[in-house]
Amino acid sequence: MIEVLHTLSRLAMVSFLLRLLLHLAIAVSFPPLLLGIIGKVKAFFGGRVGPPVLQPYRDLLRLFRKGFVFSRTTTWVFRAGPVVGLITVALAMVLMPLGSHRAPLAFGGDVLVFAGLLGLGRFFTVAAALDTGSSFEGMGAAREATFSALAEPGLFLGLMVLVRHATGASLDLMLSTEGTARAWEATPGALVMVAVSFFALLLVENSRIPVDDPATHLELTMIHEVMVLDHSGPAFGLIQYGAALKLFVFASLVVNVAFPVTTGNPEADWVLFLGAVVALAMGVGVLESTMARLRLLHVPRLLVASSILSVFGIILGS
């Protein structure tokens, strides 16, 4: 009898580990694809063929094979920037549930850790930019730091709406399929507001049009891209990969809120969830192809508007 129990629990353990491995494997390998998809959609709208969807993976491989160029002005802070930037996003990803698949790590209040991790990553990215002593990078750093400071209230206010119907204050519980489904039933209006507000956050945090143009070629108009001008080789690879991961994390955030659907079958749920993330990436591509970038000084309006949407969400939801 005990023997059977033992094997059973061992089986459960093995299947748990396998599921965890699958979860991490998907989260680690999938993100660059999103960049490829966005690029393909934009190329389609521009009437071009565009680079293959898998191009971001090749870019990363190429960068990791290169050597480094460091500015003589820089210190350890410049080298720490890409490393901390990637680690914080990776840890934020570990706290995020992917569709109906629970987050690998969760504890009460980890939702605030999520926000803190993104802040830490941003701090080091900005510090690394300032470490070069370049006026262009300083300019980008100032813009990025200012805009993301204004974006912060939107994130927290949106989370306040979600916590209302959740069973706990961890990201895993607040974004669980059942929790969000319950919230949709109780206060659909509030959830629409939050989903839209989080989508705006995705655009800001990932430097997409209309906030920033990742493909622009003029340093003066850049925000995020100008900050990483001096990084090279594998360090730049870390940054690029971190950016893809961040896009994936925020896309999961939006999909978890906007599309809380589960079939009960884990494999089908993966397909459903990744499909939704791909659809969101295509949406971003369409948006980027059809919209112009906002004037720099109009960006704060977008940020305030997204916070106000969450405020409406709170009022509707309480």
Partner: peptide
Amino acid sequence: LVVRRPVTEDDTWGC
């Protein structure tokens, strides 16, 4: 990684 790869030192890129 840095130690194992070729490292070039140069001025900050001034655009």
